[in-house]
Design a protein around this nucleic acid. Structure first.
Lengths: 242, 242
DNA sequence: CGCCTGCTTGATGGACTTCAACATGTGTGG
DNA sequence: CCACACATGTTGAAGTCCATCAAGCAGGCG
């Protein structure tokens, strides 16, 4: 009844759906006890989201938070006249949502086919209040996102189009395939239009810089989406990071 | 001896230096008990920092965290060839430092004459571990900074030079003088060079856009630093926020 | 096949940078 | 007190990078 649960016993309480879940390793669920997982899973729903579908709209009130189980979610902001900027990409097993804010200041949209595990706002917020470890885990993610956002500000403000495109490719290469010290291949999770919105460029400029990087043998492209990087350090140089 | 301290008694323990301190209201110290303040103040040192002096350098290991008591601190990143981007501005009573990271990925420099209250890393980190309320307060600030960084990414990536300068002026006006619904006057905390580094522009472009905004009667400038805004809504429009 | 969507390539123009000169203010030393 | 250097900011002219406008290409699908 109280919270002094026997650990072994507690583990047995862990819901079936959570046992094989990716978010248990690295996601916020990794800091929850078996009984907490059980409580949470009662209110959670898994959803599959097609590429291009909006999860949360800019200015909408937010009813739920989620874990990303698979896929890539893009966070973007739009101006009244339609100009758009992608301000963040989130990968599994990131937590999706802005705690303590009743409405969203940005749009979250699936960039690829995506699977999420959604919980009602109130349940998560109560659990945050009760579980310092959970808040710590969320704080850690927000610090990571802040570091990434600031890195990206340097890219947006001071890099050339070529460096921007190279920076984007380098970021994707290291995120998708974290252990690729040398040689790396991946599918781009974003269309040219999305890449342009991420880099503050136009589609045409992105395309042109991609072909230039291809001509310079820094990348190799197949089917417009599949990229191989023979020497990741050369790409990093092209991105302006020395 | 233990932590069950009588509240009234606890308040009496509050150090003299903290009683009149701005950081007790709104700063992280606002969530600490009197005895915690006492423990912290034993290790704290007040410092006055002249404009232009570096507090922490990019890549340096960080020995201490601080509260900003007065002034404005700019956070910036620099590329190997000297290109620079300011990625954040911090005002009193913000907390200065990146918890859980042994070395800084950015440079912190006083933009104006600044006063800080510095604590050793270890003391703060131990106190964070013991005090959920403190971690929550820091989490809150990092969420606020993340929101600001993402707003700024839209500005850097998608706005014109005129809109960028107007956005900067609007941001300063609302930060310095939070209750100015209509009509507002302030001193710019940043030089033209700093503003350019903040906006991803050159000094000359900033200067030109300032004179255009002046000619359009959206702002009025005295002595290059003192700005008055007759109608804050017109400035907000010029910034592209409708 | 025809139409669509996503991507590439080319030609032109414009916004911002670069280079340069000039203005203003401030401190220093004769 | 003026002469001078130096830092900060403004203004002008020329050049460059990227956006815009426009056409064409390749793959998917009714």
């Amino acid at each position: 009844m109280d919270d002094k649960v026997d650990i072994a016993n507690d583990e047995n309480v862990m819901p079936h759906v959570c046992r094989a879940c990716e978010a248990r390793h690295g996601g916020i669920c990794s800091v929850l006890s078996g009984s907490q997982l059980a409580a949470l899973s009662k209110h959670s729903t898994r959803k599959t989201i097609n590429a291009g579908t909006e999860v949360v709209g800019q200015g909408e009130s937010v009813g739920s938070y989620s874990n990303i189980l698979r896929g890539v979610v893009k966070l973007s902001k739009m101006m009244a006249d339609g100009r758009q900027q992608i301000v963040g990409l989130q990968f599994a097993p990131d937590f999706l949502g802005r705690p303590f804010s009743p409405e969203s200041s940005l749009t979250a949209e699936a960039a690829t086919g995506t699977e999420i595990c959604a919980f009602p706002r109130a349940v998560i917020e109560r659990m945050i209040a009760d579980t310092p470890g959970l808040e710590h885990r969320l704080y850690d993610q927000s610090l990571k996102e802040l570091d990434e956002a600031r890195d990206w500000m340097l890219t947006l403000g001071r890099k050339t189009a070529r460096e921007k495109v190279a920076s984007f490719l380098y970021m994707i290469a290291t995120h998708i395939d974290p252990l690729a010290d040398d040689g790396s291949a991946f599918d781009l999770p974003l269309s040219r239009a999305d890449i342009a919105d991420f880099l503050g460029l136009t589609i045409e400029t992105v395309s042109r810089q991609m072909t230039k990087l291809r001509n310079d043998k820094i990348i190799h492209v197949e089917n417009n989406r599949h990229v191989t990087v023979p020497d990741i350090e050369r790409l990093n140089e092209a991105a302006g990071n020395d």
